[in-house]
Each structure stands twice: as C-alpha cells, then as structure tokens.
Computed example of a mutant assay.
Amino acid sequence: MQKRLIALAILAASASVSSQADIVGATAGAYMWKQSWDGDVKAGSQSIDMNDDLGYDDETGKSFYVALEHPVPVLPNIRLQHTALDISETNTLNRSFTFDGKGYAATNTVDSTTDLTHTDGTFYYEILDNWVNLDVGLTVRMFDGEVRIKNQTTGDEGSIEIDAPLPMAYVNARFELPLTGLYASALGNVIAYGDNKVTDMTLALGYELGILGLELGYRNFDVQLEDDNEEANVTVDGYFLGVVIDI
C-alpha cells in the first residue's frame, strides 16, 4: 500500500511538472537589421539633413530580446529588448549652417554621429493563446543616445542629448499557419503626445521547427521629438534576418 502511495505521488509530481512546463515559457531572439537612415535634426534655427548634409546612407545594426511568461494571472509577463541603432559618417559640406551654436561653413569637413540606441522593458498580458497569439502591455524605452557634429576644420563640436525614458503602448500578434511550421507576426510600440511621436513597427514571416525558428522581417522606426529649439525627425527602416528560440 505504501509503495502504491509513493508511486502515485511520483506520478502526480511528474504531471504537475509537465503542466508547469506547458505554462511557463521563455523566448529569446536576435537579428541583424539592414538600416536605411533618413530625416533631419535641429539645434537652433536651421535643420540639418542627414543625407544631403551629413552623408548618411545605410548601416547594419543588431537587436536581441528575451521574454518570460509565467502562470500567475495578476502579474504581467516580461520582455526585454536591446537595439543598437547608431551611425557615424564623415562628409564635406556643400552649404553653411549652425548647430548647437556652432558654425559650419561650406567646404568644411565634419564628423557626425547619430545614436538612437535603446533598451525596452515591456510588461504585458497574453490576451489570446491559440492559432492567434495576442499580447498587449506597456513598454518603457530607455534611450542612451545623442546627435553629435564635429567640425574637422575648426575643431568646434555641437551636440544634443537623447536620453529620456519613454512610455509606449505595446501590441504583439502572432498568427500560426497550422501543420506547416510557418507563422506571421506583427509587433508595435507607439506613443504620441503634443508634437512628439515615436512609432516602431515590426513585421515578420517565420518558420519554426521544434524550439528553433528563423525569421525574415521588416522594421520601421520613426522618431519625431521636439524640445525647445532642438528637434529630431528621423526614420530608420529596413529588412532583418533573425533566429528565435522558444522553450
């Protein structure tokens, strides 16, 4: 009798662990992003075009994330993502302008860096969990960036800081194609207030085999920020290729 009770206890414990494994999950992913930069910045009365004035073109960046989902209904799930988003260029000016009180004349050579690198902390709830998976929540985006322009001719250097935390609405949807291993996903982080707006949208197609998945997607990151006489109107978009591990 005692041996039977022990056996039943072991079976019950095994079933409990198996059930928890079905409920508790972790996802991690990383991708290389081919970035195309466009837009303008201002620190004063004149706008500086990133392509025409600073010579920006394409850059390659990286992004990686990890998400943890748990069975506690009241507490939100957690997702962390870091995106490297910066570009540096040297260019000879074909016009004169001022930036952050510094003068830059035509034919001057300038070194510039625009850094919009950020880390997202997202707290979300899973609303649907079948062939359509839908998550909604709140992202707090921490920028650690700047726009910096240095005049090689005179040594003058102007800059604006982009380092404020930004709360954003978060939506993440995934659509499974049954019996194929294929899926489509769409993720968005958005906020708009006054003259400021940040929109970050990602679309992807993926193929999953076991716990490993491959994704091909497109990401569009649009920033419109204004603070007194400082402005940044920047769009970074392009295709990415990534890998996902879903446990």
Rank of each mutant, 00 (worst) to 15 (best):
M1Q: 13
Q2A: 13
K3V: 13
K3H: 11
K3C: 14
L5H: 15
L5I: 13
I6T: 14
A9F: 09
A12K: 12
S14H: 11
S16P: 08
S18F: 15
D22R: 14
V24Y: 15
A26H: 10
T27D: 09
T27W: 10
G29K: 09
Y31R: 10
Y31N: 13
M32Y: 14
W33V: 08
W33T: 05
W33R: 00
S36H: 07
S36P: 00
W37R: 01
D38M: 06
V41H: 02
K42R: 12
Q46I: 01
I48R: 01
I48T: 00
N51I: 10
L54C: 06
G55Y: 01
E59H: 10
K62R: 08
V66F: 12
L68M: 15
L68C: 06
E69M: 14
H70R: 03
H70W: 10
V72Q: 12
P73E: 06
V74W: 08
P76W: 01
N77M: 04
Q81S: 13
H82G: 06
A84S: 14
D86R: 05
E89P: 11
T90R: 07
L93I: 02
N94C: 07
R95Q: 09
G103L: 13
Y104S: 02
A106S: 15
N108H: 10
V110Y: 01
D111A: 12
T113L: 03
T114K: 04
T117A: 01
H118F: 09
H118L: 09
D120A: 01
D120R: 03
G121L: 09
T122W: 02
Y124S: 03
L128G: 07
L128W: 11
V132C: 12
L138Y: 08
L138Q: 06
L138F: 08
T139G: 00
V140Q: 06
R141D: 06
R141S: 06
F143V: 02
V147F: 12
N151Q: 00
Q152D: 15
Q152N: 14
Q152F: 04
D156S: 08
D156K: 05
G158N: 07
I160P: 01
P165L: 00
L166A: 07
P167K: 02
P167S: 02
M168T: 07
M168Y: 04
V171S: 05
N172K: 10
F175E: 07
L177H: 09
T180M: 08
G181I: 06
A186I: 13
A186E: 07
G188D: 14
N189E: 08
A192F: 10
G194D: 12
D195Y: 03
N196C: 04
T199N: 10
A204V: 09
G206D: 02
E208A: 15
I211F: 14
I211V: 10
L214T: 10
L216H: 06
G217S: 01
Y218R: 00
N220H: 11
F221M: 04
D222G: 03
L225K: 03
D228W: 05
N229Q: 14
N229T: 12
N233A: 09
N233S: 06
N233P: 10
T235P: 05
V236E: 01
D237Q: 04
G238P: 05
F240M: 03
F240P: 03
L241F: 11
G242L: 02
V244E: 08
I247P: 13
